[in-house]
Design a protein around this nucleic acid. Structure first.
Lengths: 334, 334
DNA sequence: TGAAGTTGGGTTATCGATAACCTACTTTAG
DNA sequence: CTAAAGTAGGTTATCGATAACCCAACTTCA
């Protein structure tokens, strides 16, 4: 909070050179003698000079910031994506600007808007959310590369990295059919908000229908997509349909919540009721339970997105569409 | 990536007013007639003008960015802190700049350094890491409020928010003594990096020593602080000391990893070996296992830090030292 | 020996917005 | 009726750095 702002002008004055020379030395460009370089570095140390990047960015019209917008930083799925992008970006000297949309189109719009005003070098935006018209307009107006994640079909921007959630749902449905489950249910939440989850559900539902299997659906609009909601929905599902023999959950967290209720209700997994989730998070692979699920490397998605953004920034346009691999995990719950 | 940069000058020209008038209208200051305001908004829409905050920040010498440095964004503990701060900061119009230190003092220094050069309005820095001399020098030179998290005794900055990890270790030790465990072990990792974990260990160890209880310690330097490491260390611990009757783990994740090995080895929890962790994360409260642990609200820590930073920014210096509450969770593992 | 290249650095003009201070003209109050 | 106060908007000077260009003096070599 100190007042005195040390600028390169002060450094220049102390070192007895011009501002431009200081700027060059600090950026390691131009040809400056070892002698002056030393003088300048000494002055920098003496004054405790800290560069003001804002001024530099404005002047050079370049940016060192890469923005990433995800629904929630505390959701381990997105946290891992974030960590993946950051691990690629940081060593290259870029900073990460983060925005959370909380699955709210309006908040997403605001996050994007303020982010764009900071002139980022690139933008990574997580999909799985219905975007507002305004947001799409903003995206169209952008002046930096933009990569969307996890978006499935209706992606925006220069490139999409992720997987087909519809196919993921199909995959699990085929597994359920192979296991010959007869009274199958789907448990999820916030399907109106989470587009990816909705696509998985649709893929699952369509495949079950094609096989002429009945499907019970237990969803809520207001519950979060976490453990507790899975527990509650499982309870109400089983009360309505006690003969259910398999449940496909929106994600691993909801699956563990649901399974803990089944366990406490004395219902054996998988003998009486089988369960499967999505994500391959560690919570599904806990002490005695190894949840059947589809594993996705969130970190790999983040890393791929970051690498692609860096390529775009460097002007490389030869970027191949990147599909992240999904692996089926056979646990002991189906 | 389009060339044409629309600036307020363009907007002003189209609306037939001066740049200053546009600036005032966009910031909603000064007194401008409804008529000109409309003209300007129309011009803004027509041109698709997007504000360049960099220029504004440079000129006004204010900042809309708050930086937060945490060891890892993918670690659920820190992800929740991050989410907590962001939830407070965002509605107030601030942006979050994130840095990951990966528990590496050098990386932390670099993150802090580039962050400071972006002239943030405030800084939140997570503790639990031994800081380098350079980092401390940078912190001393800063021109914005700085709050440190989770730091225990040797905190830096204007305020610390968190808890005493030493006391947390003591609390769990007292519980172990009450349960009358005799052959107690501690399992942890990376204690050289994670200062907080080290303090918990010390609190635990000291209390056990005061009660003249033997304590076995199984730690590794290179393993991460996650589930798999807990599993491996538990295995080697039990091989060395088959009579161990209780294990205090560095955190919940390591505890679940350890317990899954115990389970598979046919060792009953808690009859043969009891287990406890730290954090109160959902992974500890899975299907059949409710881990005994100490619950800390990471989100509350993040929120408290963000609120405090905002107060500092507003010039309020009457900020009370904030201690976050820790609650003992009695599970079925001890 | 003189043209051309190299080395080491300085000048000037922005980048896009805002702070601080003005300037007319219009009200309002005494 | 006039001075004080308010309304609506404009001028000018930065903020701190960088791009682009310029300029001496010294080498180098045909």
């Amino acid at each position: 909070m100190k007042k005195n702002n040390v600028t390169i002008a002060d450094v220049a004055a102390l070192a007895g050179v011009s501002k431009m020379t200081v700027s060059k030395v600090l950026r390691d460009t131009g040809s400056i003698s070892k002698d002056t370089r030393d003088k300048i570095h000494k002055a920098v140390d003496e004054l405790g000079y800290v560069k003001n990047s804002l001024a530099g960015l404005l002047s050079s019209q370049k940016s060192s910031m890469i923005g990433i917008i995800i629904p929630s930083a505390s959701d381990t799925i997105f946290a891992e994506v974030l960590s993946g992008t950051n691990s690629v970006i940081r060593p290259k000297g870029f900073n990460t600007l983060i925005g959370e949309s909380l699955f709210d189109p309006q908040i997403e719009y605001e996050a994007l808007s303020t982010m764009l005003s900071l002139q980022p070098a690139g933008l990574i935006i997580s999909g799985g959310i219905d975007r507002s018209e305004e947001t799409l307009a903003l995206i169209a107006k952008r002046r930096c590369p933009l990569i969307s994640l996890w978006d499935g079909e209706d992606a925006v921007g220069d490139l999409t990295i992720g997987l087909s959630h519809y196919e993921a749902g199909e995959t699990m449905a085929r597994h359920f059919i192979e296991c010959d489950f007869r009274k199958v249910a789907y448990v999820g939440s916030e399907l109106d908000l989470d587009l990816c989850a909705r696509q998985r559900f649709q893929g699952f539902r369509d495949t079950m229908q094609d096989a002429s299997r009945e499907l019970r659906v237990e969803t809520s609009i207001d519950g979060s997509r976490q453990s507790l909601t899975g527990r509650q929905l499982t309870e109400s599902l089983i009360r309505k349909h006690p003969d259910t023999d398999a449940i496909y959950y929106l994600n691993d967290a909801m699956a563990t919540g649901g399974m803990s209720w089944l366990y406490e209700a004395g219902i054996n997994i998988p003998e009486q009721v089988a369960a499967a989730g999505f994500n391959g998070t560690s919570i599904g692979q806990a002490v005695r339970t190894r949840l059947t699920t589809l594993n996705v490397s969130r970190r790999a998605i983040g890393e791929a997105a970051a690498s692609a953004i860096l390529k775009f920034i460097e002007g490389d346009t030869e970027i191949d569409k990147h599909q992240v691999e999904v692996t089926f995990v056979q646990g002991n719950t189906t």
